[in-house]
């Protein structure tokens, strides 16, 4: 599935959100266009994951609107267009008695819906997704028998199985080894450039985000700022000055 390049996939206008009475961010607006690779940076607790939840229509903003593929996020139902990978998904699946293939195929639901078994082509899509993340030979293995990095790749394959137009990732590199993180960024960059997959990734990895993403947004002190090249370099320097408990 491919959205037309340059059309807005996410449109957030004037978003404000409070958690337990405390403002998380206020009057935030941004757009993501088809074919973008957007990285969202920010300190812990800045509201990056909350922003994704608002985009997915899981939360209601205090003010403002979010539109997904030109539909209000809360009313959006075309789930086949979206792939999602949560931060804790690989760890949570570790104890589940299912094979990598079963886990990837679960997400075909977004394409088929209730009462329709996946067609051969859909199942082939799931196989292709496992192949794309280099896990084809592990399809019949129990997820719990795989390493953390491998589990993360299976979860990414699950998000990609329905061939979405938009992929949302919430800190997908947390708790994963360096080689797997590099592989993940390479894969996402390739999918973004070759198939036009729109990627929105919440991450702490500013260096890789700067290298791979076409746009970098930074959520800080309740506001969202799109960083240009110079600002991004400043952010990277800033981060290097505060390696322990610093901003990013």
């Amino acid at each position: 599935m491919k959205a037309m390049k340059g059309l807005p996939v996410i449109q957030a206008d004037d978003l404000s959100f409070r958690r337990a009475g405390e403002p998380v961010f206020a009057r935030v607006s941004f757009s993501v266009y088809a074919g973008d690779f957007v990285a969202i940076l920010g300190a812990n607790g800045a509201g990056k994951s909350t922003l994704l939840s608002l985009v997915l229509g899981e939360l209601t903003p205090e003010t403002g609107t979010v539109r997904l593929f030109n539909r209000e996020a809360r009313r959006f139902r075309d789930w086949g267009q979206i792939g999602f990978l949560a931060q804790d998904a690989p760890a949570e699946a570790a104890a589940f008695p299912a094979t990598a293939e079963e886990i990837v195929r679960a997400n075909l639901y977004a394409r088929t819906g209730w009462g329709r078994a996946p067609r051969a082509a859909d199942r082939a899509g799931a196989g292709a997704a496992l192949e794309a993340v280099g896990m084809a030979e592990y399809g019949r293995r129990l997820i719990g028998h795989l390493s953390g990095g491998q589990r993360q790749r299976v979860m990414l394959a699950r998000a990609l199985a329905g061939e979405p137009a938009l992929l949302l990732l919430d800190e997908p590199t947390a708790g994963v080894d360096e080689a797997s993180v590099t592989g993940l960024f390479q894969l996402l960059t390739r999918r973004n450039r070759e198939s036009g997959l729109t990627v929105v990734m919440v991450t702490h990895d500013a260096e890789r985000a700067a290298a791979c993403a076409s746009r970098v947004l930074c959520l800080e002190n309740g506001s969202l700022l799109e960083l240009d090249k110079t600002q991004l370099e400043e952010e990277l320097r800033h981060r290097h000055r505060h390696p322990a408990g610093g901003f990013l």
Binding site: E58, W79, A89, N107, Y109, G113
Partner: peptide, 9 residues
């Protein structure tokens, strides 16, 4: 994964 299930429709 209840959340992923919800997002998949």
């Amino acid at each position: 994964d209840e959340r992923a299930a919800r997002i998949a429709g």
